[in-house]
Amino acid sequence: MSLYFTIPFLMLLAIFQGTAAPQIRVASGHPDLLLVAILSWELVHARGEGYVWAFVGGLIQDLISGGPFGASILGYLAVALVADRVGGGLYRDRLALPVMVALIGTLAYHAVYLLTIRFFGWPLDLADALFRVALPSALVNALLAPIMARLMLALHRRVTPPGVPW
């Protein structure tokens, strides 16, 4: 998909992440629309564009965040990788796939992100972070994923010309 669309769209999601999302808490977890959008697009499109989305989205998020620059990019690339390997292009209105990929993808994101920021000097307890933040976030994202995947499927059908049958 054109970057003319991708960049403003991801920017919008990142701004939401930096303004509204911190106010929405489930335990200490937050919904991560960027993450859900990245994995949904990769599930639907499966041409590696999830990686482009992960890079662009992570870059924007790192610009907004005060954390080490690049941590979000790495985290989102892990999400795109999970989506690509587990179910890239398999999503066709099925509910279980985006839920499963959102659960695994969120945990992968938090694992990579936590290790990165720990490496850069944030003294975080990994086990506590996993149970208190990552797991609730994974559940919230798993709830959001089927909705986002449907939206992405609709978007995919609009932007991709119908394929020629073999």
Partner: peptide, 13 residues
């Protein structure tokens, strides 16, 4: 005008 999107970091913009 903004808060850190990461749940682990406490920054404001």
């Amino acid at each position: 005008i903004g808060r850190d999107p990461s749940p682990y970091l406490k920054f404001i913009t």
